[in-house]
Structures are given as C-alpha cells and as structure tokens.
Amino acid sequence: SSQSQGISSSSTSTMPNSSQSSHSSSGTLSSLETVSTQELYSIPEDQEPEDQEPEEPTPAPWARLWALQDGFANLECVNDNYWFGRDKSCEYCFDEPLLKRTDKYRTYSKKHFRIFREVGPKNSYIAYIEDHSGNGTFVNTELVGKGKRRPLNNNSEIALSLSRNKVFVFFDLTVDDQSVYPKALRDEYIMSKTLGSGACGEVKLAFERKTCKKVAIKIISKRKFAIGSAREADPALNVETEIEILKKLNHPCIIKIKNFFDAEDYYIVLELMEGGELFDKVVGNKRLKEATCKLYFYQMLLAVQYLHENGIIHRDLKPENVLLSSQEEDCLIKITDFGHSKILGETSLMRTLCGTPTYLAPEVLVSVGTAGYNRAVDCWSLGVILFICLSGYPPFSEHRTQVSLKDQITSGKYNFIPEVWAEVSEKALDLVKKLLVVDPKARFTTEEALRHPWLQDEDMKRKFQDLLSEENESTALPQVLAQPSTSRKRPREGEAEGAETTKRPAVCAAVL
C-alpha cells in the first residue's frame, strides 16, 4: 500500500463515540455579560531565545476518518491537505487489492476528492471536503458537486459515486458533537469551532446549510445566566432586550441578528466578523496607526449616533465590543453586545450600574441610586476607546495605585505619557480631550465629534464608502454560481449515467 503517514491498516477498528472529540476555545468574540476587562498594560515583551531549542513535538491529529468498508483504511489527519483517489500521487490511494476487485472500484476517479483545513476566524481551523469526481462525492447523502466544497462537521458520513455507498465517517477532533444542539438549529446550521467564551456562554462559528455562508452563533446558558443575574427581577429580559434591539436596528456599522432560537439555552445567530475584536488588534499591534484609528472611530461614531437617534444607549462600549470585518488594516467595524443597552424612556434617566469599570463615565460612578444619566455615557466610553487606539494603553487603570480607579475617572485625570502622545496629531488629542470631559453637559456629542476637524478627511470617508460598496456587492452575490457537472467518465454501479447527480441539489457548496 502507498498510504501516507497516519493511515492504519485495519478497517475493522472499533469506532469511538463522539464524546472523545476535544474542545477548543479562544478569547471572547462577544459576550452578553460584562466580565473583568482584559488588561492592556500587560503586553508581554519578546522573550530571549533559549540556548537549546526544544524538540519539535509530534503533531496531534486534528481529524480521524473511520473506514466503513473492507479495502479502505482508517486515517489520522495530521497534515493540512489529503487527496483521495486511484492515482498513485494521492496521499490516500485507493490501491488495496481487496478494493480493486470490487465492482465499485471502476466508478472512483483518479482524484476523487480531497479533505483539507484552512485558517478561519480567531486563527481556528475549518475542515472542508472538495469534490473532484465525475460520479460524485456525497456528505450525509447530499451531493457536494464537482469543483465545489463544503465544510465537514463531526460525524459526517462520506459516500463515493452513490449516496448509499458510504466509505468513511469523519471525526473532527477539535469540535463538539452536533447532537448536543437543538434540532431546529441543526436543521438550518452546521455548528463548528468555538470563537470565544464568557461567564454565561460562548460564541460558535457555524455555516448556513442552504448557502454555506459563515455566521456566529452566540449561545447563552439559561442556567448560568439565571445564577449570574439572580438580582434582576427577570434575567430573561436581558436576552430578550438584546434580541428586540438587534432586530430593529439596520446600520452597516451595527451587528445584524439573523436568527434566534429559544431552547434549553438561547441561541442568537449573528453575522460573522472575520477580523475578531478591536481589543485583540490593539494588543497585537501595541497601538494602531492614526489613519486606521480615524477610519475605525468614524464608523463607531456613525453607529452610536444611529443608536442615540433611535433612543438607544449602549452602556457597555469597549474594544471587546467592536468587531472587525476582516484581518486587513482597512476594514469595516461593527458594534455588538447589546445586553446592557437601554431604550430611552421619557425621563432619559437610568440608575442601574452596569458596564465595565474602566470605560464607565464619571456620572455613572457618582450617581448610583441618587440620580440618572443619559446618552453622554456612550460618548465618554468612545473617548476611552479612542485614547486606547491612539496610545496603546488605557487612560484609567486600577494599577495606578496612588489613585483609585473611581477617583481617576470622576476627576477626569487620565494617565498622559508625553513621549507616547508625541507621535499623535494635535487634532486627534483634542478630540480625545473633548470626549473625556467629566461634566456630561459639556462633553462632545456624537454629532459634535463628527464635525471635529480631525474627522474632516475626505480620503478616509471615501475609503469607508468603498468598503461599504464591497460589502454590499459580496452579500448580494449568490453563493453557488454554477451547477454541478453531469458529465460521466465512468458508469455508476447499477444505474444510468447522471441518474442521481442531477436530482440532488449541491447543498452548502461554494464554487472555488
């Protein structure tokens, strides 16, 4: 046999249950609850290399294929790409003598399909299967379609040439079993990697079954959420508030809700932002270029202005709740996480202390139980975000031990490091100062900020419009641009040419 590394010779191994799959997660993409704000000051410096380099560890398999027929071997997927077919160049070659004697062998292509993985959001991997055969590759009886790919989820059954000719079961060793999710959700989405997690739940990458488009699904544990919100009269209202707010909003710089499922837990389906959180971008770069800050901040102002015009105060604006559309420097941003939002009543007064301390406005800290506050709290938070983006460190921090965090904020005395700000323009610093004003009545509004000289930049605004146009074009394009080929190089076993392929839609398939 010419099988590559990772293939075992026996096809009769006992199949494990899916609970053996491991679970991976990374930083929070968007969480309903406010958790302790991640610290920006503690960015690790590059460490000196050791005298002796450690040995390379043996790579762990990321997936496993269990053979369902004699003549096929099990495969431990270690590499990122595997070709399957009769050709000797394939990493998994159909060359077992037992297999060659079967009637089905002649229906398999020289290069029938490939399984591979690509880097997705949060640097996690996504597994795909890609059909290159004349007679078809099927996943859970659905045709992939020649020249098309679809994501592979845990426990997928792979069939060759005929939908009933099941050859492998695919085990993704990095994700959960699909069966743990409600059927209504599974009918519409293929669940994938964990993108982030918080005290009350997690955010998962998923794929729409009909279109193969990526989405983010925010899962909120009702049990954990009820415990964490025990002081509230009705904890469920917080989730329902977020859903109702998101459904009503329609702005290019605000995250869109696509679906909602109320089962044992809450499942909020949101558009996916491939670039992750602004927080991670700031930490990764230490600070952002001023031109990049301007492009992002302009969009934040437009989003918050839209919220305020619609009578909504976000109340928890922070870099973790600003998501980026891509890994590119120039990209769209979207505001997310409306769990603490407040729809303005007639009095415009709110007395609930919520939000993240580092970003809270002075009037929030001094008015607990005594007075109210209004939309100006969001403008203060925007000032803190702009400060961080321009400088790479927070204006107020618990680690300045000589003054408490509350006193720093209520006095408006931010930590100004001259040598850092020497590289920032006077106009940018002036806008920061106009937003970090203790008196909410004297603080800049979103309208005033948008009129500030720093943002009178036609090149930046043109760039934003171009990015918007690109997004609109990409969302308007159909996901499947061509029909699967019906040509046949070899006959199917026991049926006429093209008899099955043309009847089945290529579900969740995307043209390369």
Rank of each mutant, 00 (worst) to 15 (best):
G355W: 03
K433W: 14
G383S: 10
L317S: 04
A510Q: 15
F297Q: 11
Y414F: 01
L481N: 08
K334D: 08
L317P: 01
C331M: 02
S485A: 15
L323F: 06
V377H: 01
L365H: 11
S404P: 03
P440C: 08
L436R: 03
E426Q: 14
G372S: 14
P319C: 01
S341E: 00
N374F: 06
D407V: 12
P478L: 12
N472S: 15
W454R: 03
E497V: 12
D265N: 12
I417C: 13
R375M: 14
Q408G: 11
L288E: 09
V480P: 14
S326F: 13
E447C: 11
A510E: 05
I313F: 01
H399Q: 11
E329D: 08
V377T: 03
P319I: 01
C354N: 00
T358M: 05
Y267Q: 07
F444L: 11
T475L: 06
W380S: 03
C253N: 07
S348F: 15
K281R: 06
A376D: 14
L323A: 02
Y267H: 10
L324N: 04
K289L: 11
V377G: 03
G355N: 09
V403R: 14
E277L: 02
M300L: 09
E271T: 10
T446V: 10
F338Y: 02
R287A: 14
L344V: 09
D262R: 10
E309V: 13
Y414C: 14
C293M: 07
C508S: 13
A263P: 05
G412Q: 03
D262T: 14
Q299R: 05
F396S: 03
D330F: 14
F416G: 00
G383V: 00
L272R: 15
E448Y: 00
V403I: 12
F338L: 02
L365K: 01
L467N: 13
E423R: 02
V322M: 09
E329C: 06
Q483N: 08
A361Q: 03
L349S: 07
I245M: 02
V384I: 10
N472W: 08
H251C: 14
P362I: 00
Q408L: 06
D316P: 00
A509T: 13
G275F: 15
D378V: 01
D262P: 10
L270C: 04
I335L: 08
D337G: 01
Y359S: 05
S325K: 10
V507G: 09
Y373D: 04
P319S: 10
L301R: 14
P418F: 03
P505D: 06
K334I: 12
T356D: 00
H340Q: 13
I312S: 12
Y306M: 10
L467H: 13
V438A: 12
P491M: 14
L353Q: 09
H251D: 06
F416P: 06
K318H: 00
K342S: 00
Q483R: 08
D262F: 04
G345Q: 06
N259C: 08
T292K: 14
W421C: 04
Y298G: 06
G355A: 02
I243V: 07
E320A: 01
D439I: 05
E447F: 07
P357E: 01
M350Y: 01
V507Q: 15
P319A: 13
A371V: 09
E328V: 07
A482C: 02
A291L: 13
H340L: 15
W380Q: 02
L353H: 09
I255L: 03
G494A: 08
Y266I: 11
L332H: 04
T347F: 09
W454M: 10
A496H: 00
A476C: 13
M300W: 01
R400T: 09
Q305W: 13
K413N: 05
E290A: 10
T358F: 14
N285V: 08
V432S: 03
I312M: 09
L386V: 04
G276Q: 11
V420M: 11
L365W: 14
L278D: 09
S325Q: 06
P252R: 05
I268S: 14
E423K: 13
P484A: 07
D330M: 05
E497T: 12
R443P: 03
S487V: 08
L270S: 05
F261S: 08
S404A: 15
A376Y: 14
T486L: 07
E242D: 03
D330V: 10
F297R: 04
N250E: 07
E500Y: 11
E470F: 11
T336W: 04
K489Q: 08
C379Q: 02
T370E: 11
L382R: 01
R443K: 00
H452P: 02
T336Y: 00
D330L: 05
R351V: 06
S326D: 15
L405M: 04
V507K: 09
D407Q: 03
V322I: 08
G284A: 13
F416K: 00
L323M: 10
G284P: 03
W380F: 02
E264K: 14
S326A: 11
L455K: 02
E309W: 15
R504W: 12
C354W: 07
Q327I: 12
R488I: 00
F260I: 11
S381H: 07
M350S: 10
G275N: 03
V282F: 09
A428T: 04
I254V: 15
C253T: 05
K258F: 08
V269P: 01
H399I: 00
I257T: 08
L360F: 08
Y267W: 07
L481A: 09
L382D: 02
S391I: 01
D337S: 00
G284N: 06
S367L: 09
M273S: 09
K461M: 12
E471Y: 04
L455V: 12
G339E: 04
E244V: 15
Y373N: 02
L405V: 09
G275S: 09
V438L: 04
Q305A: 11
N321W: 04
S381C: 15
L302Q: 10
K413V: 08
L278E: 01
L405G: 01
E274I: 09
F464S: 11
L477I: 09
L382N: 00
G284F: 13
V283H: 07
K247A: 08
N374E: 08
L344G: 11
